[in-house]
Design a binder for these strands. Structure first.
Lengths: 163, 163
DNA sequence: TTCAATTAGTGGCATATGCCACCTTATCCG
DNA sequence: CGGATAAGGTGGCATATGCCACTAATTGAA
């Protein structure tokens, strides 16, 4: 029993999620490899792309990512000239982000590679199921989970997943 | 449109999965914080716990994690005295892993905290749905995805998700 | 207007993960 | 037996993510 599965474990929603993320991440990473981008970077570039010169905070919020983590992750992309930042005109605290022309080109290039991976995944699990899974994952991500202790804003109670 | 959702994106199964993982990860991390363990470390300790002095490779395989990554992740746990390794009796290439008594104790402690988080999650999404989601994630994780180029072992074709 | 509270980011530190090059120990085979 | 391979890990390097402490710019109030 190498890959042990005693009762009580793998029941961990978080562990299961991370495991799947590692697995799928490698697949998409491999697919994007020719572009030199990691799947995470691709996702970040895309998020910036679809935003209107989004502020760091807005991006972090959309990706449910720590602001400082976003800052770190952005560095290699800035260093490689795919992304650039500039201060907001009205609020100097805000730093906005946008793709550079090379960044746009790189995203276009990666988009083709991504499509192939995405298509293969959907072929395997079915577009229908994939969509349901994404919906379920989005629902989980948006759950307002809080530890009982800080049980203050209990609105947001009965949101059900639509698996 | 801060959290932009233009068509074509968020359609990325991988990005959606990672986003959910970050979100849920924080919740479990917060829950386990009192123990001083991260949710990833907890999962690793548990995996070791349920194994019979598993070899590094076996653990990595079970968690679908890179072997070297496992080695890195194991370091802080070894440093803190929760885990120890020892060479296999018959094959000196193999390094086996086990929990130390303090490691066992720490796992027991964390298990209680984990239960609370797990329970809360299940209360929110429903045990039934949670189980289905985990099953779907396990199915995704075990998909034998390969890029078309290296399309060799095409067995493992039509595995369907059971969402 | 002035100062406290809030908002947006940064930098440092630590863990999480991967890939690749390299080292050892086993195995296979001619 | 001896060299070619395969198997199992390690170390170095790079990105991914988080938390915390701290700074700068805004806002809100007295």
């Amino acid at each position: 029993m190498t890959v042990a599965r005693k009762p009580g474990f793998s029941d961990c929603n978080n562990a299961t999620l991370r495991r799947a993320a590692r697995s799928l991440g490698r697949f998409y990473d491999d697919a994007l490899a020719p572009s030199g981008l990691k799947s995470t970077q691709f996702g970040l570039l895309f998020q910036i792309h679809i935003g209107d010169e989004p502020a760091m905070g807005a991006i972090a919020e959309a990706l449910i990512m720590d602001l400082s983590a976003l800052g770190h992750t952005l560095k290699p992309l800035i260093r490689d000239g795919y992304v650039e930042t500039f201060p907001d005109k009205d609020d100097r605290r805000i730093k906005r982000v946008r793709l550079t022309p090379p960044g746009q080109a790189k995203l276009d290039e990666a988009l083709k590679l991504w499509s192939a991976a995405q298509r293969q995944f959907e072929d395997k699990v079915g577009a229908e199921q994939a969509a349901k899974l994404r919906a379920a994952l989005d629902a989980v991500a948006d759950l307002d989970l809080k530890l009982p202790a800080a049980a203050s804003s209990n609105r947001e109670s009965g949101r059900r997943l639509i698996l």
